[in-house]
Design a protein around this nucleic acid. Structure first.
Length: 550
RNA sequence: GCGCCCGUAGCUCAAUCGGAUAGAGCAACAGCCUUCUAAGCUGUAGGUUACUGGUUCGAUUCCAGUCGGGCGUACCA
């Protein structure tokens, strides 16, 4: 039982005594040490209902508290009516064996256990390699998937793509043109074609395999397939470099094969949610939900627009029985996903299970120079190059360190920097430092490895640096829960920063290995092991490595 | 024009349902290595939370408006 839960019981019991049964009280960690370890606003809420002075009410509440004085050192009323709880150091001293016992599971939560989630992300069509801008989504999704697992979900990682649409045809035509240019240098290149060098590579590869046998080809199929195969190889290679493995690669064309698209269209028609105009089929959009005009779902050419299969796809995912269907999109899709959800909703499917995470765009720069990221124009900076330039850890860290809903300014020079300027190293250095200390400990007194909770004398934990460090470690499970509930892995980074900061302070002020005082050394090594474990678990969530040496 | 998102220290960003004196890192300045990794630590300075009003015990947070930026506003995805 967490400290918050314990205190919630204490406060709710007191509220009941005073006649408030379903009080929605909450606790928070005060920003300042002098306000204790946890604080509640209960008095404000209830005083509001009763229209009395919060401060007075707080006094009345506190006098009705029934609590364990060995855990709660003192309770104070402060300011306009905050009730501050000071938790006894003894509570934190029990934490180390708990962390070391739970090991790689310390921080895991059960709040979502038994539930399943489908997370779909990246989902770039295989018209080219992933460029650096895709990195944000790739890394964000990777960390969110981990976070969801840590909160108890069973996670299905999914990649949705379409190998039959206009974009792919366009790519096929581009490859074909490059292929033809091998014979006829003036062969026209499509107006909206893909200009990248990789298109020429694919064309040369086809020429190598097929020579001139595809000259003046009517069908683009071979070129599209060759392009898809080539590009997917690149994409999967990049995913692999970042340690991402999707469980499902879902092809849009399957929705046509199974009749799912047709079925969805029939549902719209039979429920009178669509109509025909100018040879196209339109979906009626509800103005009261903020839509300005109706949207085409089948073009006059007979081809569906992306909306229809997208709606069918989301219905398909809902039908697969997930408790949550989660999508990650860039802000350039910020309007379109609403149309998709609206479509799902209007057909009566459980659209509330669908959650969408929108991330803002990335500005990539080297110092003061902004790097452009357009795929069609060619010469874009690939994600592969980014990973090779700055490393997988820095890539992962920089893309995840900020909230998704804010524009990300990604400075390559900073990310590349192998110095204290680079925020990645602050965390990893703390870990490497601990590993160094433990290596030294093995030489000086190897018996520390045989210690267990019984050999440790918690009374030797006396300094503020030690207690503050332990307090911070104790917050990890709730930080994981909070981050998971809001799908915000950057909160884990913010938290780990605090752990690292408290550790560095502790390291600086408290001599760990002291041959003259083995009992104390043992306690401090124990603390190190607990910090090491917590850092490692946090690194696993955000998806960076834990280097033993730096 | 309309819709969504954003605006916090010089720069990049935090701030747990609306809470107490708005916090970090970098940059600047001043210190700390014969002692477990100085990729570290300590200290100083830095703010009208874009602006104006509203809601209330209390607003960076909620509401309205103004200004500024990003993304959309296709029978592309």
């Amino acid at each position: 039982m967490s400290m918050k839960d314990y205190l919630r019981d204490v406060v709710t019991a007191a509220c009941s005594k005073l006649g408030f049964d379903n009080a929605e009280i909450y606790f928070e960690k005060p920003k300042e040490e002098k306000f204790g370890d946890l604080s509640t606003n209960a008095a404000f809420l209830l005083a509001k209902i009763q229209k009395t002075n919060p401060r007075k009410f707080a006094e009345e509440l506190v006098s009705n508290f029934d609590y364990d004085k060995s855990i709660i050192e003192k309770i104070e009323i402060a300011g306009p009516g905050f009730i501050n709880f000071f938790i006894s150091d003894n509570y934190y001293k029990k934490l180390i064996p708990e962390i070391l016992d739970k090991k790689e599971n310390y921080g895991r939560s059960e709040i979502n256990s038994g539930k399943s989630v489908n997370l779909e992300w990246v989902s770039a069509n295989p018209t080219g390699y992933l460029h650096a801008g895709h990195g944000r989504q790739l890394c964000l999704g990777k960390a969110i998937a981990n976070l969801l697992e840590w909160s108890g979900y069973i996670v299905t990682r999914e990649y949705y793509y379409n190998d039959a649409g206009n974009q792919m045809l366009n790519m096929g035509k581009s490859i074909y043109a490059r292929y033809m240019q091998i014979f006829e240098p003036d062969f026209p290149f499509p107006e909206d074609g893909y200009h990248g060098e990789y298109i020429k590579d694919i064309a040369r590869k086809i020429y190598g395999d097929k020579k001139d046998s595809l000259k003046n080809s009517e069908s683009m199929d071979y070129f599209i397939n060759a392009g898809e195969e080539y590009n997917f190889k690149l994409i999967k290679n990049t995913l692999g470099k970042m340690g991402v493995r999707h469980d499902v690669f879902f092809n849009e064309s399957d929705l046509y094969k199974t009749g799912a698209v047709e079925k969805t269209l029939e549902e719209f028609k039979s429920k009178n949610l669509s109509y025909e105009k100018d040879g196209a089929i339109w979906l009626k959009m509800d103005e009261t939900e903020g839509f300005q005009k109706d949207k085409v779902i089948v073009k006059s050419s007979g081809e569906p627009t992306y909306r229809l299969p997208d709606i069918a796809y989301h219905i398909d995912k809902l039908n697969r029985g997930y408790d949550i269907v989660l999508d990650i999109f860039g802000s350039d899709h910020g309007d379109t996903y609403k149309e998709v959800i609206y479509g799902v909703k209007s057909l009566g499917y459980p659209y509330k299970k669908i959650h969408v995470i929108i991330h803002q765009m990335v500005t990539l720069r080297k110092g003061d120079n902004v790097i452009k990221l357009s795929k069609r124009e060619g010469h874009s900076y690939s994600l592969d190059d980014l990973i090779d330039d700055i490393g997988a850890d820095a890539t992962q860290f920089f893309f995840v360190m900020r909230g998704a809903n804010t524009h990300l300014d990604f400075d390559l020079e900073l990310a590349k920097e192998k110095s204290e300027k680079n925020p990645v190293y602050y965390l990893q250095y703390a870990f490497a430092r601990i590993c160094g200390v433990l290596r030294n400990a093995e030489n000086i007194f190897p018996e520390y490895k045989d210690f267990n909770a019984e050999n440790i004398n918690p009374e030797l934990i006396i300094s503020n640096d030690e207690i503050n460090l332990l307090k911070t470690l104790s917050l990890f499970p709730e930080e994981v829960e909070n981050a998971a509930l809001s799908f915000e892995p950057h909160k884990i980074i913010t938290y780990l920063n605090e752990v690292a900061e408290k550790f560095h302070k502790f390291y600086h002020n408290c001599r760990i290995i002291d041959a003259e005082n083995k009992a104390q050394s043992a306690v401090r090594l124990y603390i190190c092991l607990a910090v090491k474990q917590t850092l490692k678990n946090g690194f696993d969530i955000i998806g960076i490595s834990a280097p033993e040496r730096m």
